[in-house]
Each structure stands twice: as structure tokens, then as C-alpha cells.
């Protein structure tokens, strides 16, 4: 099973699309590893600099409809290759969300007001998310703040994460 604990990269924007996560011109790569340098290359977001801001982080917290657009699984792969296995958002595009769980990664939706609160309390500070998968709890902390937030994923999503993805799961069952 993958690691779902680590430092947070905050992306304060809704509708971040898959072209922003990994531009189409890199879809000619046939290994996941080759995608690593290009994560979020085309994201235009005040104060965000892909080169400096990605390193050392392993959880993304963002707003609504993350991963909209193309079906490219290169988006989760580019995240995975940079050590991100968990995205927490107020909403996801369907295909992106499914791709994450299909890879044994997690895309967890929280209520908008909870995401607002996390941004208010933590954005701009070094923030850590510790995930207790079995209890379905995120412990979110900064130097001067901490909060435990319970989350919900379906039994199916949970099984995909445990199995390490949809291929392993489906091969056993169908």
C-alpha cells in the first residue's frame, strides 16, 4: 500500500485541469518516470512556482473539480512520480478521481467549508497531513494548529487502495 502521509502543497484554485497537471506534449512518453519533471508545469497560480514548491511535499490540498479535462492517467502518474499519493479537495472530476484509486492512490473529497477552514488555518505555513486509513482520519497540523478530520471513501475505493489498484482487484474478482 502507498504512503498517504506527508507535507502539504496547497493549490488555491478550482478547476485545475489535466493539461495544467501534465501538458499533452508529454503524453508521448511511454514510461511514468519520464513525466516527473513536468508536473504542474502549465499551472498559472499566483505565488506558485513548480520548480520550488513541489519538492518535499507529498499531499495536495486544493479546491473544487480538480483534474477536470482529459482522461489521461498521466496526471496521477506525474503526481505519483513526485511522491504525491493523496489529493484532498472539495471536488474532483470523475475520471481523474477514478484514475487515482485505480492506481492505488487516493483522491478524497471533503466538504467545501472544511477545505475553506484548512486553507484559512494552514495555507502558507508548513503543514503536515498524517493519514490513518483504517480509522479514516486525517490529522492536519502546523506549528501552532492541529485538527483531526474524518473522511469517507466507499468500500470499493478502500478495497482498491488495499489491493494496490484496479488491475489487481479486477484480476482476482472477474
Amino acid at each position: 500500500m502507498k504512503n498517504f502521509t506527508g507535507k502539504v502543497l496547497f493549490l488555491d484554485k478550482s478547476d485545475i485541469n489535466t493539461d495544467e497537471i501534465i501538458p499533452a506534449k508529454y503524453l508521448t512518453e511511454i514510461t511514468k518516470k519520464a513525466l516527473k519533471p513536468y508536473l504542474l508545469e502549465d499551472l498559472v497560480l499566483d505565488g506558485f512556482n513548480a520548480e520550488n514548491d513541489i519538492k518535499g511535499k507529498s499531499v495536495i490540498i486544493t479546491r473544487d473539480n480538480f483534474g477536470c479535462g482529459s482522461s489521461r492517467e498521466h496526471a496521477p502518474w506525474a503526481l505519483e512520480m513526485n511522491g504525491f499519493n493523496l489529493v484532498i479537495a472539495s471536488g474532483f472530476a470523475r475520471i481523474f478521481r477514478q484514475n487515482m484509486f485505480n492506481c492505488g492512490m487516493m483522491a478524497v473529497q471533503l466538504e467545501e467549508k472544511i477545505i475553506d477552514r484548512i486553507f484559512n488555518n494552514c495555507a502558507g505555513k508548513e503543514t503536515l497531513v498524517q493519514t490513518d486509513l483504517d480509522s479514516k482520519i486525517f490529522a492536519i497540523s502546523t506549528d501552532d494548529f492541529s485538527e483531526e478530520i474524518s473522511f469517507n471513501i466507499s468500500n470499493f475505493d478502500f478495497a482498491l487502495v488495499k489491493a494496490g489498484g484496479w488491475v489487481a482487484y479486477a484480476d482476482q474478482k472477474y
Binding site: 482522461s71 470523475r94 475520471i95 477514478q98 485505480n102 484496479w166 488491475v167 479486477a170 472477474y174
Partner: peptide, 20 residues
């Protein structure tokens, strides 16, 4: 429906796909 590569892979192998 459009799907990612893993769904495609399972579709090719098993002829099934999961949806809400």
C-alpha cells in the same frame, strides 16, 4: 465513457469497467 489507462487495461483484459 472516457476512462484512464488502468480502466482501459482492465477493459482490454476482462471486458468490464466500474462506474458509480
Amino acid at each position: 465513457a472516457g476512462v484512464g489507462t488502468t480502466d482501459l487495461e482492465v477493459g482490454i483484459l476482462k471486458g468490464v469497467c466500474a462506474f458509480k
